[in-house]
């Protein structure tokens, strides 16, 4: 019995961690990274193997494995998670001219522990049949009583909303931010578990506006182009701009292959790789000089928030969660 098990196990668990591989622990989903890593292998001959999972669990694995961890890179979405990995002392400070050059200052850690690799905007989606032009202005505007019974939100448990509220705290101060979120909650029809559900509710007429990440809008529109949905870019004039966040990565302190890991990060931030890395998920390239996909271009251009350094998203995340709890944002 055990003899057979020993024979079968390696076949079943195709253990593909050769010494030369770069190993990535990532909360990005397999179907979003598989091809880009294949492309890297094709260009450089260096194999990339990866393990997917939830960010918090991967952080826990890296801690538990310590020096024995096979992982070289930690890759995840949302700056809050990257900030936490940095704060826990898991990430190595990397100094790289290329990374500094290609990635804007507000989208990477100031100590070089993590780097944004693609940009997503969290903006307002609306139903053009029900919202008049000029009605929408800013995130703060959605707290106005004219939106009562017209707003749909995603759960406050999602990190994307926590980062958004962290940004509001940073831009407006805690008191004003609380008023805004309180206004949202008053105006909200229903709170949903994911962005796609928010978009569907807006399109179906359950509410008129919602706050979502752009790529969810892109995916849904691609599947059902007939849906009555449009994107609006808030806070454009005399204001801080649209809230953006990143997916990103950092090199692990416990990695014994740091050089190769750094090289992979540099490659991912390069113009060549960015074309596929950002586009596969309908995100924006990390550097605004790089070409965008036709789809994201069709949504129009906008001014992103550059004053809010994404490290603050992590630092303020707890405050944001408490604030949302206080105003009963479930």
């Amino acid at each position: 019995m055990f003899k057979y098990m020993a024979l079968i196990l390696p076949i079943i668990f195709s253990i593909n961690t050769l010494a030369k591989d770069v190993v990535v622990y990532t909360s990005r989903k397999e179907h979003l990274i598989k091809d880009i890593f294949k492309q890297y292998t094709k260009e450089t001959g260096i194999n990339v193997s990866y393990k997917t999972g939830k960010a918090a669990a991967l952080i826990q694995s890296i801690k538990a494995e310590g020096d024995k961890s096979p992982a070289d890179i930690f890759m995840t979405v949302d700056a809050g998670n990257l900030w936490f990995a940095g704060k826990e002392g898991l990430l190595e400070s990397i100094s790289s001219k290329e990374l500094k050059q290609n990635i804007p200052f507000n989208l990477r850690d100031e100590k070089g522990r993590w780097f944004g690799l693609s940009v997503r905007a969290r903006t307002i989606a609306y139903n053009p049949e029900k919202v008049k032009e000029g009605e929408l202005t800013t995130y703060e505007g959605l707290a106005d009583s004219k939106w009562k019974g017209r707003l749909c939100l995603r759960t406050s448990k999602k990190v994307y909303n926590q980062s958004l509220v962290a940004m509001l705290i940073s831009e407006l101060g805690a008191k004003k931010a609380k008023e805004v979120v309180k206004g949202w909650v008053k105006n909200t029809v229903e709170i949903f578990p994911n962005d796609t559900a928010v978009l569907k509710a807006v399109a179906a007429g359950q509410c008129d506006v919602g706050i979502v990440n752009t790529y969810y809008f892109g995916r849904l529109k691609k599947k059902s182009p007939e849906l009555s949905l449009k994107l609006f870019w808030p806070n454009q004039n005399n204001s801080y701009g649209v809230h953006v966040n990143v997916s990103g990565a950092g090199v692990l302190k416990t990695s014994d292959n740091k050089k190769a890991a750094k090289k992979l990060l540099e490659w991912l931030a390069s113009r060549n790789a960015q074309e596929s890395f950002a586009q596969v998920n309908m995100e924006y390239p990390i550097n605004s000089r790089y070409p965008e996909s036709e789809i994201t271009k069709s949504w129009g251009s906008f001014k992103p928030n550059k004053s809010f350094n994404l490290s603050s998203a992590g630092k303020l995340q707890k405050d944001a969660i408490k604030l949302m709890r206080e105003v009963d944002y479930k």
Binding site: L9, F13, I15, T17, Q60, S61, K63, A64, E65, G66, D67, K68, S69, P70
Partner: peptide
């Protein structure tokens, strides 16, 4: 389980 065995610093990549 991870915390328990972290004393031995084992890797979760094989058997």
């Amino acid at each position: 389980i991870m915390a328990f065995f972290s004393i031995f610093e084992v890797s979760y990549s094989g058997y």
